[in-house]
Design a binder for these strands. Sequence first.
DNA 1: TCAATCCGTATGTCCGGACAATCGAACCTC
DNA 2: GAGGTTCGATTGTCCGGACATACGGATTGA
Lengths: 254, 254
Amino acid sequence: MPKPEVDPTATLDLRVDRTSPVPLYFQLSQQLEAAIEHGALTPGSLLGNEIELAGRLGLSRPTVRQAIQSLVDKGLLVRRRGVGTQVVHSQVKRPLELSSLYDDLEAAGQRPATSVVVNTVVPASAEVAAALGVAEGSEVHRVERLRLAHGEPMAYLVNHLPPGLLDLDTGQLEATGLYRLMRAAGITLHSARQSIGARGATAPEAERLGEAEGAPLLTMQRTTFDDTGRAVEFGDHIYRPSRYSFEFQLLVRP
Amino acid sequence: MPKPEVDPTATLDLRVDRTSPVPLYFQLSQQLEAAIEHGALTPGSLLGNEIELAGRLGLSRPTVRQAIQSLVDKGLLVRRRGVGTQVVHSQVKRPLELSSLYDDLEAAGQRPATSVVVNTVVPASAEVAAALGVAEGSEVHRVERLRLAHGEPMAYLVNHLPPGLLDLDTGQLEATGLYRLMRAAGITLHSARQSIGARGATAPEAERLGEAEGAPLLTMQRTTFDDTGRAVEFGDHIYRPSRYSFEFQLLVRP
DNA sequence: TCAATCCGTATGTCCGGACAATCGAACCTC
DNA sequence: GAGGTTCGATTGTCCGGACATACGGATTGA
C-alpha cells in the first residue's frame, strides 16, 4: 500500500500578484509564514520540492528559493539536502530584535507610562564620551526617564545622545519611545552592543523605584549604532527584577 | 580636478580556486571579511560595483551577490541602492550566537574549571516537564555543576535533559561544556529561548557561590531546541554579577 | 541476517542575462 | 540663487537552465 505523501503546500491557496510592487519572493514567504503561523503547515511536515512549487506558482526556482531562504533565516524552516524542506516544530517566535522597552511593553498589551525626570545638555563624562565617540567634556544630551507599568515603577532609564542628532521634546518622549523618535528622524538603526548584569540598589535608586536599598536590580548598558557606524545612543538602565526580565529567542547560525 | 575614486577591492588580491570544494561565494566572502578585519578595507569605503567585481574575478554576479549578502547578514557591510556597498564602521564583532558559558570563558582566555555536583536521573518536575515536552514525573537527567574561574565560584548551573539523548559522563562534563558534548553526539542545535533576570540569593545558593544571603544574583533560564524542534536541554543558571555579565551584539534586521 | 553498493530525489552551487527601482549629482529653468 | 528635472550609476528582482552533492531507501552481495 503506497503512502499518500501529499505535498501540504498543494492544498494551500498560494498565489502571487505580478501587478503588485511587492517582490514575488516576499509575497510567497509571507504566505508561507502565515500558513505556518495559522497551522495550515504543521510542524515537521515536508514542504514539497522547490522545482514543482515553482512550476505550480509560475515562478522560477531562484525566486522560490529566496522566499524559502528568508524563512530559514527566521528559523521557521529547515532544509536538508536530499530530503527536503520541513517546518520546524514551532516554539520559535522572535529571533531577538533590537527592541525598545516601550515597544516590548506595548506588544505585551500594556500601556507604558513614562515620566521624563531630566532632559538637558551636559558635558560628556569619560564613560559617555568613550561610548559615543565624542570628546570628553563636549556637550551631549542627557535624558532620564522613569517608566511605569500599571502605575508601578518598572525601570529607570538614563540615556545620552550625541548633539545635533535629534531635538528631544519632553512631550514626545513621554508619549512614545526613544527608538521611535530616532527612526522618525530618519536614523537607520543598525546594531547595538549590550551588557546585562545585576547589582544592589543604591539609596537614590531604591528611592526612585520604590525598592529597598541593596535590593537586587537588573542592569543593562547599551550603545546603539546607525548604519554609518555612528554611535547614536548610550543607555544605562536599571530594572526591577520583580517587574521585568529579558526574554528572547536566538538562533544558531549554521 | 577629478577625484581618484579608487575601488578599494581593486588593490586587494582577491582570487578564487575553482578546484576547491569550498563554494566560490564562500571563498570570496571569507577574503572580504578578512580584508575588513585586517584593515585593508577601511570602514566607510565603497566596495565598487558588483558587476565589475564579478568580471574581475571571473564570477557571475549572483555569486558575488551571495558573497556580499552573507557579509551584510553578518552586519559587516551595508548596501544602498543607487549608491553602492560600503563597509560598516566596525564596532561589530559578534552578532550574538548561542554560546555556552564554557566557550565564552575559553574565548576570554580563561581556563574554566567545572565540578559536577550532581549527575543523576530524577522524575521531571512540572516546570522541567513543560520545558522539555515530556510527561511530568517521567525520568530525566539532572546535572548540577559549579563553574569556577581563577579558582573562584562564578556560576551554579542546573540542567535537565530528556532521557536517551546523550550519556552524560561526569568526567567529560568536567573537561568540556555541555553544548560541545551535545554537538559531538550529533545533535544539531537550532534555537534557544532565554530569560535573563535577577534576584537575591537563597541561603544554600549563597553558600555554594560564596556570597551573602540576599546578595544580588544574575539568573538565566534557557530551553534549547534542535533542528527537529525537540527540546534537548533546559537550564536554570545563577551567576555572581561581580564575576559575570551577559555581553552581546545584536543587529537590526532590515 | 547483515553489510556494502547503487540510485532516485531534493537541495546546493553557479551561470548569463534582463529590466525595474532608487539614489545622488549634474543640469536646467525660473 | 533656489528650485525642480534629467540622467547615469548601482543595487533589487527575476528568469531558465545546468551540474554537483548529499541523503535515504532499495537492491545486491557476503
